[in-house]
Design a protein around this nucleic acid. Structure first.
Lengths: 325, 325
DNA sequence: TTGTACGCGTTATCAG
DNA sequence: CTGATAACGCGTACAA
């Protein structure tokens, strides 16, 4: 309708500077008039690129992933890349399925949470030449590009802080460790700190449970029902800690007077709780944005594409107090 | 490699029952061996379907959308449909862009939040024949298929409750109403209830602000700095209410003794606050699942595809108390 | 600067 | 039940 060939239309859409201003405006007018949108499938078929990257996260119901995704998506959008999100519900099997589904959709990049997964999956990714970035985890010598932080060190620092305040009967509510290297690292970090003082985390003072409010509440109730009860509960994330505070309140106890509580993540929730939560601040948004940049670099085969490690910070609020205060 | 034509491979993948067991297993073996995945673009081009539906939400950082999406995605996945999510950041202009982007990707269905948008957009959708469902809003006579609840009636009921408890100096912290029919309806509902008692919401006791914790905190501080100060603050959602509680605490006041606060949505946050939030319970997950079912029906051209309205419930907790208690 | 012509991987039609 | 073949809409050498 603009009196030009399809090739010219294609150029107007993809490399407008290579078309004369006159023809370009004619084409643009026609595009606007007919409300034309290029066909994604045709485009993908011809160019073998989709301008799409996929992300597989455990669940959107956890604020940390929601925030990270939001930042990831915003950063990708700046380069005209669309994000497709899938969820695994913390199930490694399901995660593998979702990764395959995204590959089938021709994503030209993947963002995955953590490092723990079947080696065969990594092989598939490399064989297909699909660039990917691991987020949320970081350790020295990780063989894949990752954007994260040292979960173990952060948890260790938190436990050390608790110990420094005089606590000795310390319990932990951890996330489910199966297939979740962050949850494992956080338990290990706490163990490190305790071991340095000759203490350990045994069956009675470590509970592993899904990252849900009521799960945290139940776990805390169980931990606090032994005698003598722990004086501090270290939690695998803020949601579990919020649950622990609920349990403490409902048992007629008080935090931090009777029991101190610590969290991990520093989501908004931590700040509005009463007492506000002492927790580990994690820069979720910045990680999401950094993951986007790294992935775009990998995709463009740039050689300055390298892993990024973020620092975490211990945020001291009211839920953790010296023993016997 | 299986010694068959591409047509047969296609059949094995899409209508396995139309292929003899023998050939089928040969093909399946080859598929497994080469870890073959059909090319999404080619498929979309040839079949003109993508088995993809798109959703445009304001932001993933609000737990209500995250929960709704999660449920939507799970329900769609049961029918082999993938969900692609885009965010508008509460900007109508950006929402329109995102909708066009999703149409360009050939989504064969759309889930949109609320009803307020440019009529031209609705025309585009109808012209293209892309089925869509509006979620989160519902009103009698809505011309489009929707899955939601009556925001206005729910807000009215909440305000009535506040009035019934003796409050007369009532303020409201609302979400930004521009392009957000839910925010508008909630303000209208509160106005309805006040008007029925001869009261009104004027400039000094209504603040419109983004749905963020600190925005709610600032708004509450402002509302509470007039004399005489309001005895109750009705909030447009739970996040704003949490912010209001922070302000109250930081001003040396106490809720609900000095000021009552109410929320809207009933996210987990509402339950862990101290005092726990009196709020409007909204079945976000069920709405998401219902939206998925309705959209799948529309897509299949089933004629029993009709709007769904959900009931909300007033959840009484500690943040709202009788005046002068 | 613009047009021609081919091929991308799949599905659908038709014939065998 | 299976194979040959023609679209599907676009990007991109190459030619003009």
């Amino acid at each position: 309708m603009a009196g030009v060939s399809t090739a010219t239309v294609s150029r107007v859409l993809n490399e407008p500077e290579r078309v004369s201003a006159k023809t370009r405006s004619r084409v643009e007018a026609a595009v606007a008039h007919f409300d034309y949108t290029p066909h994604f499938g045709g485009r993908a078929l011809a160019s073998n690129r989709t301008n799409t990257v996929g992300a597989v996260i455990p669940t959107m119901e956890n604020a940390i992933f929601a925030r990270g995704l939001q930042a990831l998506q915003e950063a990708l959008a700046e380069d005209g890349v669309t994000l497709v999100v899938a969820t695994s519900n913390y199930d490694p099997e399901r995660e593998a399925q979702q990764i395959r589904a995204l590959l089938g959709r021709g994503v030209d990049g993947l963002v995955l949470i953590g490092e723990a997964r079947d080696p065969a999956l990594y092989e598939t990714l490399e064989r297909r030449g699909v660039p990917f970035v691991l987020v949320w985890s970081w350790r020295r010598d990780c063989p894949w590009p990752c954007v994260g932080f040292d979960n173990r060190a952060a948890a260790r620092a938190m436990a050390q802080k608790v110990l420094d305040l005089g606590h000795r009967r310390i319990a932990m509510i951890a996330g489910v460790t199966h297939g979740n290297d962050r949850a494992v690292a956080r338990v290990d970090g706490v163990r490190d700190a305790l071991a340095a003082r000759g203490l350990r985390l045994d069956e009675t003072n470590l509970i592993e449970t899904p990252y849900h409010l009521d799960a945290g509440e139940n776990a805390a109730r169980q931990l606090l029902s032994v005698t003598p009860r722990p004086t501090a509960i270290v939690c695998g994330n803020d949601v579990l800690a919020a649950g622990a505070l609920l349990a403490i309140r409902s048992m007629g106890l008080s935090a931090p007077a009777d029991v101190s509580v610590t969290g991990f993540d520093d989501i908004d929730l931590a700040y509005v709780l009463d007492p506000p939560l002492t927790t580990v601040h994690v820069p979720h948004r910045r990680m999401g944005a950094a993951a986007a940049r790294l992935l775009l670099r990998l995709r463009a085969q740039e050689d300055n594409a390298t892993s990024v490690v973020f620092e975490t910070a211990l945020v001291e609020r009211g839920s953790l107090a010296p023993l016997g205060k």
